[in-house]
Design a protein around this nucleic acid. Structure first.
Lengths: 341, 341
DNA sequence: TAAGCTGTTGCAAACGTTTGCCGAATGGAG
DNA sequence: CTCCATTCGGCAAACGTTTGCAACAGCTTA
């Protein structure tokens, strides 16, 4: 059916091993022979069978990329960057979606293990133990999770959260809410810890609401609870939840940022398009994707075990404004009106 | 290194063929033997090597999914649905991004060909000839493209465009602009044809501006040209461009829908979140992804060659309003004011 | 002239499976 | 007790590659 190395060998009058070497070790074959083989190969439309090659070399030239939710706008830029970067290095990428389910995650790693040279686990929800277990079956690089001894790429969301909280404190807010993300998320713990510490250090209150699924609906559903706390500012686990909250508050006629300020995290594509435009912590997702691919492919099969931390940056837009203790509290009304348009 | 069928055979005292059959043809092995083998396999942590299996069976249990741009919000829901659906059928999915480049598309198909049982080509930009060529190397199903003899899943964007244009005509618009998408896009041709025919039949004008890359920047960049035409309504190739245009018009102080109505296509996640909320044609992308996977896997390797057409629906929001010839033109101001909030 | 390189090629085993074929064991019918 | 059918399991070839080893030619060097 398909044209194999044997067909090329026959057609060009050499042994199959010579054909093989023409592709995998060109310097070992006479230039003249090589070009002849190359010509017939081209003419016959020969393409090496990667599966067969993998069987004997043990290297598949494939990698796996496992994310919680492909449709969550946080991931596509990461996936795209990782795929492009991997392909430039002649690797193909399996993409899989766990739907936020840790057990699916584990199954997926095992199913993919034999078919890839390594797996990128993005924002895994599994326990550290499970991950430790799995790394023995296949090289793993985790993104947005810190596990000692495991190569990782993390975005310094703790720093982002601190900046966000300081921003809110600076605006005169004294009672904040953290709208927590899913349990099992390292990012969630980091944000919570960083935000809590920063608020406490300044003598402010931080109420944690959650856990929640990291989707718009969850953000919207929490509106009542948020209002119930009496807080004047909210930091959400991600932009999706922040935007959901924004919508729900709007529906209730609650002014943002007049009555409540809202900060998201991620800076997804449309954070700057909703009204009010969302103040948020930008994550370098594309860079993270590339860095993770590099880490995975870097060490032949040894254990390069570094941890790369990428900076995040607070982007101040219109969803945050002066709080009740603002030195410029008198200006609140005016500023809010201005920000509204 | 890894545990193979041979290890399991040794450990359970049977021949490797028996182990093989335990997994691939259980009814051929004595229940007692089977459970013994299963037990040792489980204990040893044996996982069949799909590459080796593929080598002999010719079926890889992988499929390829090629899209123009993973980060374009149109695709992630499709990718997610396809991946989930495929996995339920025990298939893994390679995802690749062509960055809207037709030559990358062709390379990708060839590179993936040996490693998959079939490829889903989503919104391909290649010529029909090229695709005809490639289908001889690997089973292909195209999404959003109609090629005679090739299995396809298309969303009936022509119908959607007609509905959108009728909606605009009904509002009293007589001069429309179609903001065209990329060359090579079947969808683009369909929309253009349908919109043009519908407008012409009603004695209205339709000016085509383009081609454009299907991104926000292109939509924004076309604002001047759009205004220059003197048209009062715009249909954009996709929501991204429509939203870009919306932003650019807003920056220029042009009222939407007061001065110009804008309609997008796709109904991406945030079409309903921008202000004004975008009137758009919703595409059933998730259903398309599932249908395409079904078509690909359905026929063993024969040539199921149907074409599935999925319905689209116009979603009327706030970016469209009465035009200069509206029977209710007198109400324009009031309606616009209302819509604005 | 013998010995030793170097560069090029062929030979054959190996990778982890599946599967057609054959033989052994079992059991029921005659 | 013999014969046949059925069920089960082993044997070995095959899938398309890679790669260590050996063979050989044409050199150079001593």
């Amino acid at each position: 059916m398909a044209v194999t190395i044997r067909d090329v060998a026959k057609a060009s009058g050499v042994h199959i091993s010579t054909v093989s070497r023409t592709f995998s070790a060109p310097h070992l074959v006479n230039p003249e022979t090589r070009s002849r083989v190359l010509a017939t190969a081209e003419q016959l439309g020969y393409r090496p069978n990667r599966a067969a090659r993998a069987l004997i070399t043990g290297r598949t030239h494939n990698i796996g990329l496992i994310v919680a939710d492909i449709a969550n706008p946080f991931f596509p830029p990461l996936i795209k960057a990782a795929e492009t970067h991997a392909r430039r290095r002649d690797y193909h990428v399996f993409v899989a979606d766990t739907d936020e389910d840790p057990s699916v995650e584990a199954d997926l790693v095992q199913a993919l293990a034999k078919q890839v040279d390594g797996i990128l686990l993005c924002s895994p929800r599994m326990s550290d133990d499970q991950i430790e277990q799995l790394r023995r079956e296949v090289p793993l690089v985790v993104v947005n999770r810190m596990i000692t001894g495991l190569p990782a790429v993390v975005m310094d969301v703790g720093q982002g959260a601190r900046e966000a909280v300081r921003h809110l404190l600076g605006l005169g807010h004294r009672h904040l809410v953290y709208l927590a993300g899913p349990r099992g998320s390292w990012t969630n713990r980091e944000i919570r810890r960083a935000a809590g510490a920063t608020a406490r250090a300044a003598g402010a209150d931080l109420t944690v609401l959650g856990p929640h699924q990291p989707v718009e609906e969850a953000g919207a559903a929490s509106a009542e609870a948020v209002l119930g706390t009496g807080a004047t500012a909210v930091l959400a686990y991600n932009d999706l939840m922040a935007i959901g909250l924004l919508q729900a508050l709007q529906d209730r006629g609650v002014a943002v940022p007049g009555r409540i300020s809202v900060v998201g995290i991620d800076d997804i594509a449309y954070a700057g398009l909703v009204r009010p435009r969302l103040t948020t912590v930008a994550n370098p997702t594309a860079a993270a994707g590339r860095a993770a691919v590099d880490m995975l492919l870097q060490h032949g099969d040894g254990g390069a075990t570094g941890q790369v931390t990428l900076q995040t940056t607070l982007i101040i837009r219109n969803s945050t404004g002066p709080g009740p203790h603002s030195p410029a509290a008198a200006l609140t009304a005016e500023v809010a009106a201005h920000v509204k348009e």
